[in-house]
Design a binder for these strands. Structure first.
Lengths: 219, 219
DNA sequence: TACAAAATGTTGCAAAAACCACAAAAGGTG
DNA sequence: CACCTTTTGTGGTTTTTGCAACATTTTGTA
């Protein structure tokens, strides 16, 4: 099993990571593209690290429509412990969107202290905390955006955050417009219509994925 | 300053909590009802523990409309580190909804290790991790609910989770219908109309805050 | 380069939701 | 109890949205 070079193990030397692997009962599993990695409903809690490939978290409703809730890149961490749970209606699961390797860690062991690796274990918990804080910020940002009632407000709310982060009135979407509509939880064509309207009103010009806010007062 | 009896300090004895207070530069501040406690936009990060009273996290838009994003009860923790940030458009801040006492902790110190209290510091970080995980789950649950496009689906999605948690097809809203509409980010009157429709269709009966799902197959 | 697949762009139409205005009921308080 | 405030309940009207269907462009890849 390859020693991980991911934020979860930052500031821990390779030898100590190996000890932690034992402590956390690490198991490496390979998945084909499209394969289901796990359901998000286990009582125990899944904790996975993507060591190659890519993982998407998908919600599947009773009609078979699927929505992508999250993308996890290489060295990213996914877990039903801190995000999303299947319900009676909607199934949520992790899928390999590419040929993917995942290292599974035993979640309960995170909070147990074994005798041999305690020092690094503390660092591990700190790293984990930082990651969950980051996930939490991302989620709360999305709640803020989704809390707007109209597509227009959702787009402008997103733009407001993007402008703040980029420091410029122009920014590029980190995803396709199709995915963007999915992120905003709105119909793509309705969003396109609204983008055109915003453009004609001189509020926000868009060219494919490049967005330019024309006046800060609008956002 | 009263020794805290809150999840952030669980499994830590009173004497050690006092040491941690020093380590984390704890400062106790009292607020009158309605007072602004802090803005959610500081670069450093606010970390507050409610030791008496109640705190609400409010978003205030340019028109002056305010939305309550979160309620923090006694012994609860609030922080802009893991949830919500003000943007150019919307101001977000913490307010005392009752006469309230808050103990502020220095966020950067959470990740620093001082020589005298390290043992308890680890426990503190673990406790903090558990709290952030809990907050994260709450947020992701809300994203799941808000990701539905119609009011009907939002209500049923909420009901699905509530039924799962309560273990019964009947549950009582922990808030007013007015607040519930705000939580779902929909117009209250439109929601009332939809609740009536759900009732007439024999899907979900509601009487004030008491909801009864008539058949599990609907949720 | 040629082909297939994905993404972008556009429109009509029906459905849904927001907005508005108001009435009745419930709850809290002096 | 009387008063005020909040919550609940209702319906009309306008706006917004989702849906479906399609053309065009871009992208990836064999």
């Amino acid at each position: 099993m390859k020693v991980l070079n991911c934020p979860l193990f930052s500031n821990i030397r390779a030898e100590e990571v190996k000890k932690l692997y034992i402590c956390l009962r690490a198991k490496e599993v390979k998945f084909e593209q499209g394969a289901e990695i796990c359901a998000y409903d286990s009582g125990k809690g899944v904790l996975g690290v993507v060591t190659s490939g890519e993982v998407v978290i998908k919600k599947i409703d009773p009609n078979g429509n699927s929505t992508i809730l999250d993308h996890i890149q290489k060295n990213g961490v996914f877990s039903d412990v801190f995000a999303f749970t299947s319900t009676e209606v909607n199934f949520i699961g992790a899928y390999a969107s590419l040929p993917t390797t995942v290292v599974f860690l035993d979640y309960p062991s995170v909070f147990k202290r074994c005798e041999n690796a305690c020092e690094y274990h503390s660092t591990f918990v700190e790293n984990f905390l930082k990651i969950v804080i980051e996930k939490s910020k991302t989620l709360s940002q999305r709640v803020e955006i989704l809390s707007n009632k109209t597509i227009r407000e959702k787009v402008l709310s997103y733009a407001s955050i993007a402008v703040k982060n980029s420091g410029s009135l122009t920014f590029t979407l980190p995803m396709s417009l199709t995915s963007f509509a999915e992120y905003l939880c709105v119909d793509r064509s309705a969003m396109m219509r609204e983008l055109k309207k915003l453009s004609s009103q001189g509020v926000l010009k868009t060219n494919k994925r490049v967005f330019t806010v024309l006046d800060k007062k609008y956002i």
